[in-house]
Design a protein around this nucleic acid. Sequence first.
DNA 1: GTTGACATAATACAGCTGACCGATAAACCT
DNA 2: AGGTTTATCGGTCAGCTGTATTATGTCAAC
Lengths: 202, 202
Amino acid sequence: MPKQVNHQERREEIARALWRVVEQRGVTRLSLREVAQEAGMSHGQLQHYFASRAALLCFAMDFAAEQTADRVDRGVRELGDRPHPRDVLRLLLTEMLPLHADARATSRMSAAYVLEALHDEGLRTRARDGIAQGRELVEQVVRRAIADGHLRPDRDPVTETHLLLALTGFTPLLELGVIGPADALTALDAHLDRLFAPSGQP
Amino acid sequence: MPKQVNHQERREEIARALWRVVEQRGVTRLSLREVAQEAGMSHGQLQHYFASRAALLCFAMDFAAEQTADRVDRGVRELGDRPHPRDVLRLLLTEMLPLHADARATSRMSAAYVLEALHDEGLRTRARDGIAQGRELVEQVVRRAIADGHLRPDRDPVTETHLLLALTGFTPLLELGVIGPADALTALDAHLDRLFAPSGQP
DNA sequence: GTTGACATAATACAGCTGACCGATAAACCT
DNA sequence: AGGTTTATCGGTCAGCTGTATTATGTCAAC
């Protein structure tokens, strides 16, 4: 064969090409041939690395989630040893919203994936488990914040977690330009301010 | 000619069939032939009422927005003469979230539409204008609530409007079953409680 | 009863889709 | 050296897509 190639690397390269197709040309244009062209390889070569379209989609989605988690981890590390939970939550949400190129790519990918997952049992459980895991992580941060006295103890950690996750609802507003990034950040900060406000002063 | 047929009615019937396809079979299955089959008519007949796929999509989306607005109007009327703004906002959001069959159909339709609109200039401005109009309506309710003393005057109406709209972010969580309808309503009420809380008691 | 607008149907068409196959060549392992 | 594995490519296939065209049916008005 030609040079022994790193399969994982090649697959990630293809996944990135897929993201680019989804971001720049749209979900409707997502086909093996388009992805292959974007990745600069032949249709047949792509099929050598992914047996089916579904397999490619799954990998691209898992990779997107992984990359997002990495971005968050990197950001958290920059926050120092004992980061304030407010900063952690803010980071989590800003990395999930389409506020910069990387986040936008993975965000659109996720949206397309969810829409497909609604009618595919396999994708559905996969997507649900992934999001549920993220939900759990946020709830853990919230509970910890309560335990550490950063949040009023009468806050329900589950409800607060859900409200935080709901803020990803800015996504379509941002994508369509109904609101700008500054608006989203202002609103996000307002919510966090209120969440972390000491009792007696809303 | 044969029986004079009501064009508008027929088109709405087709649009409903399209919703059903999107809801039950998924966006990827959305084709003229599938819609025609779902509507119980021939492929050619459907083309008699919609010159192109794009025209059908636009109509189905406009009709969905219109139906949602109608549901909200009907609900507001049930709230009596001078409804509390909290109830109005709650109604608005519960009708936008996929909490019952009608809302779920239009919700999925909207999601698919937004995803397509990102890469089609025509659809894009159409979608943005529609959402911006809804945003304006919510802001008006918020401003009115402040003027009437239901909301603390130091609330920024724009930020509060954005935070309310962001609550549509529950949609994917509900659709995938990560959270249940009760969770969404609990969180929604918690947010409204906090929004309408008098100053000095968060 | 002929005309003509409208409703419905059937089919053709060019394009793209994903899955699949075979050929070729390069690199590895005995 | 010879056999095996891996990589890449090109092409075929049936199926579906949106669009376009044509044919047939239907009924009101003249």
